[in-house]
Design a protein around this nucleic acid. Structure first.
Length: 822
RNA sequence: GCCCGGGUGGCGGAAUUGGUAGACGCAGCGGACUUAAAAUCCGCCGGCCGCGAGGCCGUGCCGGUUCAAGUCCGGCCCCGGGCACCA
């Protein structure tokens, strides 16, 4: 027999090519809306087309494919689409480096990566492919934006960006290294620009409240989003300032009001600017603060510094004069950009006061009496007010209420709900993004582009110089006429944040071909996404923006769906040698050669088997080798099984019963691991155990066996092939055929466990004395507590440890253990 | 700095609701087959003590709750993710 015709030789390349041809001939991943069938929408975060697939993609998309293929076998109408998050900075960087237009670079990457994805055998409906840099896609984003503008949900305000004074360009946080420009090493400045914002804060309460209903999201993600939104209840209070407008501060601790010993404002606060006007050293300090890059992490890690403004404010209750300082830890973006400082009861205020010799005045004592210790830090608990005049003796709630009422009555303060969440700045001063569809008219002001004139198309055939966006430098692109008055006017030349495109693509997959509306009835059939999978690094921004967009689309009447993702799985990082794969570290493993060498199934199996999806995953060359060994072994054994002859020989009913039990316990565990727990690594471990048992059985039976044994072994392999389908779909399909079946294994029903077959007659009983393991006994599975206790006490080693001591207590956990306390 | 995770053999990990620590795999070691190698198959595999039965120790560190703690609570250390213009 030559190798070509010997099916027992495992040739992944040949098998996978043939099976993929079979799938594409039958077009079996294309789906349509079918109200008669229950739908399942399985989605992975779409990739940025950076060049070629990396292991993070391979892992992500295999996870999704396992779920999609499993659900299909459970009878669902499964949609699994794929597309491209195609706008972004890397295309501009590549354009500078290789002198190729961003569009061309992006499209050629997409073509390459599509081929790579197809080689993996993912069950995608490619007819729904979406590419965000195409006008037919971003057109609807522009359309929605003009609706939002009309509703007052999109507006302009001045906000800071990182600015390189040498390159004369805006820098992303990523392009700032140690406060310097990554290209020319110039110290980065802040620059104030008028930019577009979306009022996500209008939706803060709903975004927060709905988190409670997202019970199938990881608790960590929900907690991070809650903290990010950061709802707090407090008071906004007014402090009179000599010679200036009153200063507004926001506080969540009005109970500490009488302990305020200074006020602090942000460097960007108008009062700081006013004070700096005639104080050069103060101006220098304010200027220095403004040089810090825009990123919050950069500001928060600075040494806490400040300087007096030489201005005094009046305490609104006591009338005392208190100093006002400018401090680098006060954020202009949060609250009012000014804070009241209570060093005795706030740690940051304490450290600052200690450093600058400011007064520390305790005004809260513990509810249970006793003194607070301020020798090495603030006392930040809630308690009872002291040294607070008329408010003495009140607790937190009482003081909050009394002080709030006082300020409400005299009109110098109000209760206020505040959010840490800020409105979403969507303007980017870059070229490779969707143009913001607005027009500036000297006469009419800001005018949205009318629906009939959409999309505002980004020119793709451009010379990209690197510094300055081509649509900003081109004198003609921006020229247009005002839709309102018909006079010459200019287009907005900023483009959208790329998070805009990724905030609604999941809904567009339902109707990617609709050229008359953003969404249609098909999205009501498919949405929401039943299972969403992607990197944990998106836990806050992308997922929050997507939730926000879904609500925006609902509120303009496009859909009824309020939340886009019913169930969420956040996958961990892919590591090599204990660290994240990166070009810098030179430890990147390219999936492509791995597939060429071992086949897609082996790579998929290994990536699913070595770690649970939400944990980081460590690539190991030896590990993938092991996975390959297993697939080969499965193949060989299944082939050999088909040659097993029936003979009139003895058979062992006990062995058969054991295998039968293991078979059903495995079906049960694998089903639960995939469906509920999503721990594919333990599902595969269980499948390997069943496989190993089947292999041993096959070896033990030899060339011929009793009819009952042959039937059972055949059944076992049938089940294995189906349970393995989500993980190694090509091999599974080929073996399905070798086992004599027609059609597609993924259209075969998922095996179901028979609870009766899982019942054990005997169990192992663990016996402890004082919590330490002293014996393992085999007992009847249905033995009662008394019988278990008797059996435990009857063991010699147990008796040895009880010795002369009196038995004080016996804990019996049926089916598990007996613990004897002496 | 703030928010969220994680830390278990030589390695990746398992232990699902507080109840047998180390499933499954990788590496290693020993053996079988072979002229040989590869492939394959069998056995061993946390540390220490013991001929053995078995015993002691052991889940980042310190302390606590409990009959019982990898799991719960308090305090630390280290690593990773996010911090609004990376995607």
């Amino acid at each position: 027999m030559n190798e070509e015709s010997d099916v027992s030789v495992f040739d992944p390349e040949r098998i996978e090519t043939r099976v993929q041809t079979l799938w594409s001939e039958r077009d079996c991943f294309r789906v349509t809306e079918d109200p008669e069938r229950e739908k399942f929408y399985c989605l992975c975060m779409f990739p940025y087309p950076s060049g070629k697939m990396h292991m993070g993609h391979a892992r992500n998309y295999t996870l999704g494919d396992v779920v999609a293929r499993y659900k299909r076998m459970r009878g669902f109408n499964v949609l699994q689409p794929m597309g491209w998050d195609a706008f972004g900075m890397p295309a501009e960087n590549a354009a500078i480096k290789n002198n190729v237009p961003p569009a061309q670079w992006t499209y050629s990457n997409i073509d390459h990566m599509r081929t790579q994805l197809q080689r993996f055998g993912f069950a995608y409906d490619w007819s729904r492919e979406v590419t965000t840099c195409r006008p037919e896609y971003y057109r609807w984003e522009q359309w929605l934006f003009t609706r939002l503008y009309e509703k007052g949900l999109a507006y302009q305000k001045v906000a800071a960006v990182n600015w390189c004074p040498v390159d004369q360009t805006v820098l992303a946080n990523e392009q700032v290294e140690d406060g310097r420009c990554w290209r020319c090493d110039t110290v980065v400045e802040r620059k104030e620009l008028r930019q577009w914002f979306l009022r996500i804060t209008d939706y803060a309460d709903e975004l927060l409240a709905e988190l409670d209903n997202l019970t199938e999201w990881p608790e960590a993600v929900r907690t991070m989003q809650r903290n990010w939104i950061g709802r707090s209840e407090g008071l906004e209070l007014e402090f009179a300032v000599d010679g200036h407008d009153p200063l507004h501060v926001y506080t969540t601790r009005p109970d500490t009001l009488m302990g305020v010993t200074y006020l602090a404002v942000a460097a960007q606060h108008p009062l700081a600017a006013a004070a700096a006007k005639d104080q050069p050293d103060l101006a220098a300090f304010v200027d220095e603060c403004s040089r810090v890059q825009a990123a919050e992490a950069a500001q928060e890690t600075l040494e806490k510094r400040g300087q007096p403004l030489g201005i005094e404010a009046t305490h609104p209750i006591s009338g005392e004069k208190i100093p006002v300082l400018v401090a680098n830890f006060v954020l202009m973006e949060y609250g009012t950009g000014a804070v009241m400082a209570v060093p005795a009861h706030d740690q940051r205020d304490f450290e600052f006061a200690t450093r600058y010799g400011l007064e520390i005045r305790p005004v809260i004592e513990p509810l249970d009496g006793g003194d607070i210790d301020l020798s090495d830090g603030a006392w930040v608990e809630r308690g009872r007010l002291v040294n607070s005049g008329e408010f003495d003796g009140l607790d937190f709630d009482g003081a909050f209420e009394a002080i709030a009422r006082r300020f409400e009555e005299n009109g110098r303060g109000r209760r206020r709900v505040n959010y840490r969440l800020r409105d979403w700045g969507v303007s980017r001063q870059r070229y490779w993004g969707a143009p913001i569809p607005m027009i500036n008219c000297a006469r009419c002001g800001t005018v949205p582009v009318p629906d009939a004139d959409l999309p505002v198309v980004l020119p793709e055939d451009v010379a990209f110089e690197g510094v300055g966006s081509p649509i900003k430098t081109d004198p003609t692109w921006r020229q247009t006429t005002c839709p309102r008055c018909g006079e010459p006017a200019e287009r907005e030349t900023d483009t959208f944040d790329t998070f805009m495109e990724s905030s609604w693509y999941f809904a567009r997959y339902a109707c990617p071909d609709n050229d008359s509306a953003m969404l249609d009835a098909r999205s009501d059939y498919w949405m929401n996404v039943d299972q969403y999978i992607g990197g944990v690094e998106h836990a806050i921004l992308h997922l929050l923006y997507a939730r926000f967009f879904q609500k925006l689309m609902r509120d303009v009447g496009l859909t009824k769906t309020a939340e886009p993702f019913a169930r969420l799985m956040t996958q961990g990082m892919v590591l090599k040698d204990g660290v994240k794969m990166s070009k810098n570290k030179g430890n990147v493993v390219d999936p492509q050669p791995m597939i060429e060498r071992y086949g897609a199934d082996t790579v998929r199996l290994f990536m699913m088997s070595d770690a649970p999806p939400d944990q980081s995953f460590e690539w190991s060359d030896a590990g993938v080798e092991g996975a390959h060994r297993f697939v080969r072994k499965l193949w060989r054994a299944a082939c050999r099984m088909t040659t097993l002859k029936t003979a009139d020989v003895a058979s062992n009913a006990g062995d058969r019963a054991a295998l039968h039990r293991l078979l059903h316990k495995t079906i049960d565990k694998v089903t639960d691991d995939i469906d509920r727990r999503m721990t594919f690594n333990t599902a595969i471990a269980a499948l390997r155990e069943l496989s190993n048992a089947a292999f041993r059985r096959l070896d033990a039976l030899g060339a011929a066996a009793a009819a009952d044994d042959v039937v059972q072994l055949r059944e076992t392999f049938d089940v294995l092939v189906r349970l393995f389908q989500p993980f190694i779909p090509h091999t599974s399909q080929a073996l399905y055929e070798i086992l004599g079946h027609d059609g597609l294994v993924m259209d075969a029903p998922w095996p179901l466990a028979d609870a009766g077959a899982m019942v054990e007659e005997e169990r192992e009983l663990v016996v402890q004395v004082n919590g330490k393991l002293r014996a393992r006994l085999t007992v009847a599975a249905d033995a009662d507590k008394a019988a278990l206790e008797t059996a435990a006490l009857g063991d010699a080693n147990v008796q040895k440890f009880i010795g002369e001591k009196a038995v004080r207590k016996v804990i019996v956990v049926p089916g598990k253990l007996v613990n004897i306390v002496v």
